[in-house]
Amino acid sequence: MRSRAALGLKIAAIGGLLFLHLPILLIFIYAFTTEDKSYQWPPPGLTLKWFAVTWNRPDVWAALGLSLRVAAISTAIAMLLGTLCAAAVARSRFFGREAVSLLVILPIALPGIITGISLRSAFSVADIPFSFWTIVLGHATFCIVVVYNNAVARFRRTSGSLIEASMDLGATHFQTLRFVIMPNMATALLAGGMLAFALSFDEVIVTTFTAGQQQTLPIWMLEELVRPRQRPVTNVVAMVVVLVTFLPILGAYHLSRGTETVAGQGK
């Protein structure tokens, strides 16, 4: 039963996977096309010229720099808050525990535009001008859930008796944290952090509401998508973005492999 899949099923499954991946491959081909006025297929010729052109574009570098800085700081905040929350929810039962886990998931369960416009109206009510930090505020909020999911899964599988044993043997809370909990949690946290980074690096919907005039890389891309001005540069940037986000995803996969965690469950 298990080994013999019906032919139709096999075709449907593989067709589905191709549907998911061929478009991304197409981007890679377009990055090399010589055509710069339209999306002509098949490409009339192949060239490496656009990589050099993109390399010399200060606006692309500025957007990339902003995106990386926002992602780094949001990830750091999310890792701290997500881990704390996961520790509380996984290790004890208290009044409102369900509410806390719902609250963490909410920013990602509701459509991004809700989070975006909520933050926007809060900023306008509180008279907060748009800045680097308003972007971080939004990103950290929806990144918490990613770290939380990874951490809570690991906490559940870390046996509580380990911690009790450590305390019984005379370790303080801090020593237990340092020598027992941290080594157990490290890979889960790192995986969560990587996914949070990828999520923040890529986020555009919330960012359009919280960025003001600043351009993160996704916002730069969005403007190119709405009003294409420099197709070849966009093609190259798109390809680089795919490659850059693949790295943390593959990293997170390797870190959480064999631990039964589905990394990034319920993004």
Partner: peptide, 18 residues
């Protein structure tokens, strides 16, 4: 399944424009 899920949303939309 994971790679498309986590890889860039905008780039994937862009690929359909192509």
């Amino acid at each position: 399944v994971m790679l498309p899920l986590w890889s860039s949303y905008l780039v994937r939309v862009y690929s359909w424009k192509l």
